[in-house]
Design a protein around this nucleic acid. Structure first.
Lengths: 341, 341
DNA sequence: ACCGTTCCCGGGAACGGTCCCGAAAAAATA
DNA sequence: TATTTTTTCGGGACCGTTCCCGGGAACGGT
């Protein structure tokens, strides 16, 4: 036990060869006698030789690894993105190193340093909720390390970006609520320094304006992507003198919790209050009433981001790319005041 | 752009020093003139020097990294475990490298090789659903690389293990259903080569036997931790000549989907069928009726596993440790036929 | 003035691979 | 047989870092 891992040198000594020869045999490259090669490969298998990736990476000046920074693994949306990233990376023969910022700017910065000193070949980043500045990404770009933001992107940095059509889909969702006769639509908005949140709010208010409905500050809740405040928000909405007749939630978990509280308060859904979620989790179809939501193709987004990144790693001189992933409005019972037939 | 990262040698040349001196200055170790040290540190900061972890790891023969293999990130239970692992690792100043096996034996084996050749200092593993042999872990143990299994453990390997009291809690859960007057309790069982699944089934049948109820094969569903078969199972149960009056599901998602299908079929919960889940996801309190479940402290389990592992990394001569994490039965409406008061 | 100690610093080996280059041996050609 | 070509292998540099060792300078004590 506690034996040092077997190296190329060990095999060389055992066979009376030089390490160059052993290396050649194991790589399968040129200039090697078949018989010698066989002997080496055989012994290597027998000794359970595993090449030391560290040494290789040091020599090659590349690690075949892409670093990923996401806010939280526990967040299903990002977990699904990571799934897409992994799939693409696997196919390209690259490894993935995942860090989570826990929605903290400081941790995000630490993650960045950690991945940088691990010499990853490229970076995939969804910034934290707290991150309202972008200076920590500058050095990455200056050094020419490929960097792709996804979903929670950074603007004005000249980096590649993949995100969903938040403005359009929020517009569409809001319009759907209006079409169902809703006139006082409450909206859960995220932090306004995030591109995603701003776009959603924009789509929401654009839709209201188009249909000559007032945009009221009192109906806009500034949430922080945190779920522990949902109950508070729900009670606030219920207690309003002019109760809203719809709520566009920031995600499905918030939506479902809201529905639950509304129902307990004797409100009927969607009759008294329509509820629209975000992300289209599996749960949506199993709650009562079934929750309408926005289907965000998280996996596709991750995959697209990874594709772009790998492209940039392989061809250093490419221009930054921007890709927009289309979302889809999934209408279920929780927003259908007018029965479809 | 595309500049090579600055190395210790670069700094040495710029200041007319040797790399040894620069190294000493940056490490903060012995024998260095304060003035020289200042100059070096200053320039390093200015040039945004990041030490090359690869070189360091190669030299030190350790990576300060623990490798983690889990079935799926998308599985919230394992996502939460990883959260606990990360927290403990962070506090110990160690990095975490996560691989997912996608519930495939082959991928698990590949992950193992990949982590091994990355020279992780230790391994945390929850085996895949498919894994019914253990030979691929032997070499790890023989080499003395610290290895801790968590939740989905491997028996008879002499490795450290952390898992929950599946037998006890299943016993308790089943007894709870019996106490509510259930006599025909259906049970979703996982693959029987998994320790966890076997223990759960054991607890279930022990409880039945204790209360003189028959253990019927027809009531035991052999699921594969897959959710896409749930509907099929539900329809099977409904169509039985003697319908079960309770179902102990393999996880909350399956439970909630079952409830949904039962309700659509006109069955009342818990009156006609009681439903008990597993994992106690947040959703449980928001569905209707609120779902009883088993609270599995996933984060604690991950944390415990990481603690044990780090301990073994730091002190090579420790004996394998086994820790059992206590679960808790959380009773809600979905199993309360007899109203509590 | 001489010697021992302390303080700084540089040189070089080592970690485990790959790869370029040159050399010896074998084979082919003249 | 002599020369060229090909095949096969070894030597060593290199990647970036740490660490051991040795050496020179300054300094204090005799």
């Amino acid at each position: 036990m506690d034996k040092k891992p077997v190296t190329i040198k060990d095999i060389a000594q055992m066979l009376g060869l030089s390490k160059s020869t052993v290396s050649r045999a194991l790589i399968g490259r040129s200039d090697i006698h078949p018989e010698t090669k066989n002997k080496v490969v055989e012994l290597a298998k027998q000794l359970k030789y595993e090449p030391n990736t560290l040494a290789l990476n040091l020599k090659q000046q590349k690690t075949n690894t892409i670093g990923v920074i996401i806010p939280e693994t526990i967040n299903r949306f990002f977990a699904r993105s990571v799934g897409g990233i992994q799939r693409v990376a696997d196919m390209a023969g690259m490894n993935v190193m995942i860090c989570q910022s826990n929605e903290s700017y400081l941790t995000e910065k630490n993650n960045l340093h950690s991945l940088l000193s691990s010499r990853v070949d490229g970076l995939l980043v969804a910034i934290s909720r707290e991150t309202d500045r972008t200076d920590h990404f500058r050095p990455i770009l200056e050094r020419g390390i490929p960097l792709v933001f996804f979903d929670r992107i950074c603007e004005n940095l000249g980096a590649s970006q993949v995100f969903t059509d938040n403005a359009e889909i929020s517009f569409q969702g809001t319009e759907h609520l209006i079409s169902q006769g809703c006139k006082r639509i409450a909206f859960m908005a995220g932090p306004q320094h995030l591109f995603t949140s701003r776009n959603r709010l924009q789509g929401y208010s654009d839709a209201l304006k188009k249909h000559n409905l007032p945009v009221q500050e009192s109906l806009i809740i500034h949430s922080q992507y945190r779920t522990n405040k949902v109950e508070e928000f729900a009670r606030y909405l219920i207690s309003m003198p002019q109760r809203p007749d719809a709520i566009f939630a920031i995600n499905d978990y918030a939506a479902i919790e809201m529905m639950h509280i509304f129902k307990k308060s004797g409100l009927r859904i969607p009759h008294d209050v329509a509820v629209l979620g975000f992300n289209n989790e599996n749960m949506c179809q199993f709650v009562e009433p079934a929750l309408s939501s926005i289907d965000h193709p998280a996996k596709d987004m991750g995959a697209a981001a990874a594709e772009i990144l790998i492209n940039h790693i392989r061809h250093q001189d490419l221009k930054p790319e921007q890709r927009i992933i289309k979302s889809k409005l999934v209408i279920r019972e929780s927003t259908l005041k007018i029965p479809a037939f």
